[in-house]
Write a protein that binds this DNA or RNA. Structure first.
Lengths: 264, 264
DNA sequence: TTGCTCCTCACGTCACGTGAGGTGGC
DNA sequence: TTGCTCCTCACGTCACGTGAGGTGGC
């Protein structure tokens, strides 16, 4: 039998690891001296320890390993599950690498792009349809006035949903529900995950930004799962609409707009 | 300006994260009320926060991000470095997946294989050459007697280095240095990383185990960087050699032998 | 006025590494 | 006998999540 030091060198792990595994009940010395608390190990224990180390190298947690080695959990099933997890981890890394690559590529030709994937909360909104090429500003004015007069304006930013045919549905966040008519609708935007990017400045560059976001999504291995949304975070509006002041700026160079593409 | 809750929903992070980033000096509210300690944020801060979140999504640590956003560290260089790290992580995951695959494949045909990659410490040894097909047992007896009489036997296990031409060099660990002669040599085995596997039972199955370890190394994307070593952890020996009792067993079914292949 | 939100601790996560300070064994 | 090894705490790592217990603001 060996004390912990020589045995740890034989096994290729630190003495601290052996002490932890003893305390966890995962791997115990063949004998512990009651007086000195010295731990003694035998080389015949190495196969048992080796099994534990192999599972650890696969990234399985110690609590799970404890269940596997004493048979409370099925080894084959756990390895299958771990394989799935590893494949998910690999996809996550590949996405990060793709995000880096597309950033390098774009930095040469355009401004940097900071795409972030994040959850969007569900929200109740008042909506108004705008035809392709229609007057979005006038539509917002109409919708905001209506929501203001109903005293239902929520503090969140307004936005628009862009459809493939060039039409749009602009929306203004509301509290509670809302009466509808033939022009103004009420619905709840669904919660989802979305790839999002912020744009600064006037709306002229929105088309380019949208195209870059689409390309980013493709490169990162995501797939679109809904219509693009535009959120106006810093913008201009008439004072009589009495919008939350936090959103309002005077100059179009200070505009901040978020593009959101729901993804699967 | 918004309190922390509405702003956190706008940004897609938790309030707790915003409080941490404030404390870290990474991202501060536009204004903090001295009396209530309430934090107030503006939507115009979103681009600044977005940059931080993008870097976080790449797996960069917050301390590093702090250095990047205030310009103390070069962004392009950091992203390059991060890309290298991500590629290393991906290789590590690919190796784990390969290890899982080869395990599934082998479980159908043979006993499971628990390969562990670990560092081997350097060690001083007495050595003796054995011709292809030579008497390994007799050679060990000669070498152990010699080391015993010189009172240089270290407590570590004996082993052998296998060469491609079928010859071997058996070794016995020693303390300090050793006089050499035309039969018995002295050298220091170099420290290295090795893929290792334990075999239980008699030596007849060593050839198969060796072949499986070689295949594992190939599948996991490693490359051999030295001769295969064999370490005898549980074995039989004559009492007069006075070897450490911890290594000795009576029955060949209790033998434990480690195969080690140094890797790059 | 009543909830709701905000505040500051404080602990848990995970598998160790790295001491501090003290004692046993060759 | 002198180092060396062993022992048990205890803290640090990393970026949060999740309470507890209390207070401010519409």
């Amino acid at each position: 039998v060996f004390t912990i030091g020589p045995f740890s060198r034989l096994a290729g792990v630190s003495a601290k690891v052996l002490r932890s595994y003893d305390e966890l009940g995962l791997f115990r010395p063949v004998w512990t001296d009651q007086a000195s608390a010295y731990r003694y190990y035998s080389p015949s224990q190495l196969p048992e320890l080796r099994r534990i180390l192999m599972l650890r190298e696969l990234g399985i947690g110690l609590a799970e390993i404890a269940r596997l080695v004493d048979g409370r959990r099925d080894l084959a099933a756990a390895l299958d599950a771990r394989r799935d997890e590893l494949e998910r981890e690999r996809r996550a890394i590949d996405r990060r690498l793709a995000a880096l690559d597309i950033r390098f590529e774009m930095d040469r030709t355009a401004s940097p792009i900071d795409v972030v994937v994040r959850p969007l909360p569900a929200e109740p909104v008042a909506t108004l349809r705008v035809a392709a090429g229609g007057d979005v500003e006038a539509a917002f004015y109409e919708l905001e006035v209506r929501v203001r007069d109903l005293r239902r304006r929520a503090n969140r930013p307004p936005g628009a949903i862009l459809f493939d045919d060039g039409t749009a549905e602009i929306f203004v966040p509301v509290r509670g529900s809302l009466p509808t008519d033939d022009r103004i609708g009420f619905r709840r935007l669904e919660a989802c995950r979305a790839a999002t990017v912020l744009e600064r400045g006037p709306y002229g560059r929105m088309g380019t930004a949208q195209a870059r976001l689409e390309r980013w999504i493709g490169s990162a291995g995501y797939r679109r799962a809904g219509e693009t949304r535009v959120i106006y975070l810093q913008f201009g509006a008439e004072p009589e609409l009495r919008l939350p002041r936090a959103y309002l700026v005077d100059r179009s160079t200070d505009f901040v707009t978020e593009l959101q593409v729901p993804i699967a």
